[in-house]
Amino acid sequence: MELNHRQNQILATIRTEGEVQIDHLAEKFAVTTQTIRRDVNYLCEQGLARRVHGGVSLPASLTNTSYRYRSDVESTVKDQLAATLAACIPDGSTIMIGIGTTLARLAQHLLSKNTLRVITNNLQVAQILEANENIEIYIAGGQFRREHQDIMGSSAVSFFDGFEADIGICGCAAVTDRHFVMEHESIEADISKAIIRNSRKQWLVADARKWEQFAVVKVSPMKQFDKIFTNNQRLPKEFPLHLTAKAD
């Protein structure tokens, strides 16, 4: 289920400020404390926040939320971004696809391609593309993360280092105000870095919510990417943007 705008802003606030009191949030968003409590209750039910005395904070774990939950968030926007991205990939390309739910949606739109070679550590991508026998699939070995449906670890990084792709496609956990692409964990950032260095062209897909999120591990500056697929209409025009759908 998608979060509304205020719920996203509450998450952004607690990621920036840490523990936040209900009264402070009510004043900040000009609504009643009862309204904020309903929002907080929903965020806690989804595992995105936890209640503390008189307020709310981040969950004890700072790792990424589950694949199933993330796949439902901003699902329409993610599908639009995936369709736009897929249309830019020529038949016969060799592509690297990283982690994330938007990239799993990309796989659905790649099924109509005549030929492709796909190198990935994203299990959902591999399972979807298996339906097209004209698509070659190479999948990493390593640590299986059940909750994220991907393969991680040093062996997965080495796997990507064994190829050179026409296009490397990355998602991300967040983008900073200084336009730096971020991930929650070092093992996730290492995968994206491997894709970037082993591809002749680097593409990023990031819905507008990524500019409201917080993550601690740097991947690369946005300027390193040759194409950026987003619905964030507020980015500087010097970036190679492929815009789709308007942000809320």
Rank of each mutant, 00 (worst) to 15 (best):
A82D: 07
E164V: 09
C170T: 14
Q124S: 03
Q149H: 14
I89A: 10
E185H: 15
G171Q: 12
E183W: 01
V118F: 02
F159D: 06
R146M: 11
G141S: 00
I99P: 03
R146E: 04
N114W: 03
G162E: 06
D150R: 08
S93Y: 06
M152T: 10
H109V: 01
G141A: 07
E130V: 10
T101V: 04
Q143G: 01
E164S: 15
L110Y: 08
H179T: 05
H179A: 07
R145E: 08
G141C: 00
G141M: 00
R105Y: 13
E185Q: 14
T84N: 13
C172W: 00
F163D: 07
R117F: 00
C170R: 04
G168I: 08
A87H: 13
G98I: 03
V175N: 08
I139F: 06
T176G: 00
S186P: 09
V118P: 05
L106W: 12
R117H: 14
I99Q: 12
V175I: 11
P90D: 07
E183P: 05
A87S: 15
Q143N: 11
R178F: 00
C172S: 09
V175E: 07
S112C: 05
M96P: 06
A104T: 00
L103M: 03
R145L: 08
C172M: 02
G92Q: 09
A173Y: 12
N121F: 00
H109R: 13
Q124A: 02
K113V: 09
E136Q: 13
N121H: 08
G92A: 10
L110D: 11
E130Q: 14
L123Q: 02
I139M: 10
E185W: 03
G100R: 11
Q108L: 09
M182N: 01
M182V: 03
D150K: 02
A83D: 02
F180D: 06
L103Q: 13
L116E: 01
I128D: 06
A86R: 15
R105S: 10
S112R: 07
D177T: 09
D190L: 09
I128R: 15
T84R: 15
R117D: 04
G162F: 05
F160N: 02
E188H: 14
R178D: 05
D161V: 04
S112F: 10
M152E: 08
H179D: 08
T176W: 01
A156P: 06
I139H: 13
L106N: 10
A86T: 12
F163Y: 15
M96F: 15
F160D: 02
E136H: 14
H179F: 13
I99M: 10
I187N: 07
I128G: 11
F160H: 08
K113G: 08
A104H: 03
T120S: 15
I167A: 11
G141N: 00
A126N: 02
I137H: 12
S93F: 06
T102C: 08
N114I: 01
S155P: 01
A86E: 09
A165V: 04
G141P: 00
G162M: 04
Q143E: 11
I128V: 15
S93N: 04
M182S: 02
I169D: 11
V181C: 11
I128H: 04
A131E: 04
T120P: 04
H109K: 13
E136R: 14
Y138E: 11
S93R: 11
H179C: 02
M152Q: 13
G98P: 03
C170M: 04
E183F: 05
A126S: 12
D177V: 05
S186G: 09
F159C: 06
G162D: 14
T115L: 00
S155E: 02
I151Y: 12
A86N: 06
